[in-house]
Simulated scan of single mutants.
Amino acid sequence: MASMTLFHSPLSPFVRKVMVVLHETGQLDRVTLQGVDISPVKPDATLNQGNPIGKIPALRLADGTVLHDSRVICEYLDQQHVGLPLLPREGSARWRRLTLMSQADAILDAAVSSRYEVAVRPADKRWDGWLDAQSEKIRRSLADLEQQHLAEIASGFDLAAIGLACALGYLDLRQPEFGWRERQPGLAAWYAEVAKRPSMLATAPTA
Rank of each mutant, 00 (worst) to 15 (best):
A160K: 01
I153Q: 06
K125S: 09
A123W: 12
E152V: 10
D132P: 00
H149I: 05
S135C: 09
V120R: 15
A119S: 15
V118P: 03
F157V: 08
R115I: 01
E146S: 04
E117R: 14
S113W: 04
Q147I: 01
D132Y: 10
G156R: 02
R121A: 09
W130L: 05
L145W: 00
L150N: 10
A119K: 15
F157K: 02
P122D: 13
I138L: 00
W127P: 01
A143V: 01
A133H: 10
S114F: 02
D144V: 14
C166Q: 08
C166I: 10
L159H: 11
A119V: 14
G156H: 10
S155D: 15
A160Y: 03
V112C: 12
L145G: 11
L145Y: 07
A154D: 13
L168V: 03
K125N: 06
E152R: 14
L164W: 06
D144K: 09
A160D: 01
L164D: 06
V112K: 15
A119Q: 11
D144N: 02
E146K: 00
E136Q: 11
W130A: 08
A165F: 08
E136I: 07
A160E: 02
H149Q: 08
W127K: 00
A111D: 05
R140C: 08
E146T: 02
A119T: 14
L142E: 00
L159D: 02
L159M: 02
A167F: 08
D132F: 01
R140P: 03
Y116C: 05
A160Q: 14
I162E: 09
R121E: 02
A161I: 01
A143H: 13
A143Y: 01
K125M: 06
L164K: 02
G169Q: 00
R126V: 11
D128N: 12
R140W: 02
A123D: 10
L168Q: 15
H149D: 06
S113F: 15
Q147E: 06
E117C: 01
Q147K: 08
E146R: 10
A143S: 15
A111V: 15
R115E: 03
W130V: 04
R121G: 10
A123C: 12
G156F: 07
R115V: 09
P122C: 11
S141C: 11
L159S: 09
